[in-house]
Design a protein around this nucleic acid. Structure first.
Ligand SMILES: [Mn+2]
Ligand SMILES: [Mn+2]
Ligand SMILES: [Mn+2]
Ligand SMILES: [Mn+2]
Lengths: 219, 219
DNA sequence: ATTTATTTTTAGATTTGTCTAAATTTTAAT
DNA sequence: ATTAAAATTTAGACAAATCTAAAAATAAAT
């Protein structure tokens, strides 16, 4: 089967929303994809026809195994291209998302297998998100945020909670990226802000909101 | 302005046909793009609205300067991606055309400039076709075919007349590619076939039809 | 338990890109 | 100069993907 760019974007969005909430609703999708609810309903019916999801009117949708497989193959392409753009073409990590959003729809499977090999079979994209292998398997992503880390603990940054360029720019400016090692010095009860120390740098302050979107692994 | 994949494919096809025949007709385009003449007429009117070409009903079309500029930007992308696929991803030269046909529609100009730099600013694609620079300039391509070469002359292969995989496979099998040095030993008056010698290989015979599609430069 | 608000779906319209069948124009042949 | 053939355009239809406005279903509030 071959699917359109629009269909693939819907499947990917449903997959993403399904991660936090099993049942995905029309309005959630409408917000995620910047389309009107009426258009979403239309598309859901078509995708249901194509057996990519189960559609129960008024109750929302769930991907079928086939739908999940398709979602993972698109995510795989998206993340491999992002890795390529950053590692080979020297793009900044906050500039690659939109380009990968187009590249992910190029259809050749052979292209992706060779790209994967060329890149050395990377395990994660520039934002720390795991890259599914050709069978759709991927390492489960860390869900410990800096907000949840205990005071005094040392950790390494493994990912970010969202892809917005405002977040990525802020992190770049503070010299925080994937792999950055840090130590949580203090957490203020008043506003949830945290003081962290990076190697060879003075202590800096991060807001609670920012701490929430930074994913870490203790070391 | 941003154009659809369909529009870009029309503009590219018109550019190609315009190389051998100034005025491009509906039927020529219909054959080139595998669409019905009625569909072509429709699209030509739209492209004319968008000032990409001059459309005279029943007489055919010619690209405007704007249309030519667009055509060259798509050709630039197509050929850079082909070069990438062969040089970096180790694709065979007869397998890259269809993939580049999709990649050429990815819209980011930044992507193409960085890809160009990453590839080392190549001058020609894997089939010997010149790659336009970011301003649309490119070196004029050799138009001397093996059929026109005089007996006894030494030459180097600079390109091929068409991109069909049947041609490319045949050339691969006979160890002929871009840059191959050869000497024209004999031409048979009966059928126009030629005998050529490649370095360290026995003399081989090529049909007139094949000799016609192999472009060379004397050395 | 009604009423009100929110969510979702339906109905009808629009744009893009394609098709078939019929009409028109241009070109070629008698 | 007519007539026949070929090329091109027009007319009308369709699928995909979107929209707005209205109707229907579900959820929340009184
Ligand atoms: Mn996308
Ligand atoms: Mn990413
Ligand atoms: Mn194309
Ligand atoms: Mn080529």
């Amino acid at each position: 089967m071959n699917f359109s760019t629009a269909e693939e974007n819907y499947i990917k969005a449903i997959w993403r929303l399904q991660q936090s909430d099993e049942n995905v609703t029309t309005n959630e999708l409408s917000a995620e994809l910047q389309t009107k609810p009426a258009s979403v309903t239309d598309m859901l019916k078509r995708l249901s026809e194509k057996k990519l999801l189960h559609y129960a009117p008024y109750y929302g949708v769930k991907l079928t195994p086939e739908g999940k497989k398709l979602a993972l193959s698109i995510i795989r392409k998206h993340r491999l291209w992002e890795y390529f753009l950053v590692e080979k073409l020297q793009f900044n990590w906050d500039a690659v998302h939109d380009i990968a959003e187009e590249l992910e729809h190029v259809s050749s499977p052979e292209l992706i297998e060779r790209l994967d090999a060329f890149l050395g079979y990377p395990k994660a994209d520039p934002h720390g998100d795991p890259i599914p292998d050709s069978k759709g398997r991927m390492t489960i992503t860390s869900n410990l945020s800096l907000q949840q880390l205990e005071v005094g603990a040392a950790a390494v940054v493994t990912g970010v909670g969202d892809q917005s360029s405002s977040l990525l720019e802020l992190l770049s400016q503070k010299n925080i990226g994937i792999g950055t090692k840090l130590e949580l010095k203090q957490r203020h009860a008043f506003d949830g802000s945290v003081e962290i120390k990076l190697r060879n740098q003075p202590i800096i302050t991060l807001s609670e909101q920012l701490a929430k979107t930074i994913l870490v692994k203790t070391v």
